[in-house]
């Protein structure tokens, strides 16, 4: 016997929640308990009074699973609202990355030139290394990291994405 797999879609979900202890474990745990995927998850307090946080989750799954994920999130007591940005779109998504590259000579110059093209900022320098700071959609960061791999990539840190629907609402 073999286990069949279904085709997936990527969705960006934006969830506003009451900022209570354990909320992150509750949300992340729901994903593991029900076998849903998390590609990235970001969370931060977004209100004046520190009562509300916004969690952005990038997930993937067949459409009926995405619908279930939203319904399951929506029924958690501390969840205020679940928005499927991919469905509500068009939307802006951004991620921040720190990319450390070490090298000398041509490699170093090339890294700097590429960083310029990608509008990455240099936030730390030694004679043999740079740390670049880069924001953008995830695929832009993927591309940049891919290029740096050939030029002496040491390490990468990424925040995971935050997203917002375009327009006035």
């Amino acid at each position: 016997m073999h286990i069949a797999e279904e085709t997936s879609e990527r969705h960006v979900l934006s969830i506003t929640v009451t900022n209570e202890a354990g909320i992150l474990a509750k949300i992340a745990g729901l994903f593991t308990a029900r076998g849903y995927n998390i590609e990235s998850l970001t969370v931060a307090d977004i209100s004046d009074d520190h009562q509300v946080s916004r969690i952005t989750i990038v997930t993937n799954g067949p459409p009926r699973v995405i619908d279930q994920i939203i319904a399951q999130l929506d029924r958690l007591v501390p969840v205020h609202k679940v928005a499927d940005l991919t469905e509500d779109g068009p939307f802006v998504e951004r991620e921040l990355a720190l990319v450390k590259v070490a090298g000398k000579g041509e490699h170093r110059i090339e890294a700097l030139r590429l960083a310029d093209i990608f509008r990455a900022k240099v936030v730390d320098t030694t004679t043999e290394s740079f740390i670049f700071e880069l924001t953008g959609p995830s695929d832009k960061i993927d591309t940049f990291v891919g290029l740096m791999r050939e030029l002496g990539l040491v390490e990468v840190g990424r925040t995971g994405i935050v997203g917002m629907v375009r327009g006035k609402d």
């Binding site: 009926r64 279930q68 319904a71 929506d74 029924r75």
Partner: peptide, 10 residues
């Protein structure tokens, strides 16, 4: 419970 709807049977 909305999550019961369309969970297994559309």
């Amino acid at each position: 419970d909305r999550s019961s709807i369309n969970k297994t049977v559309p």
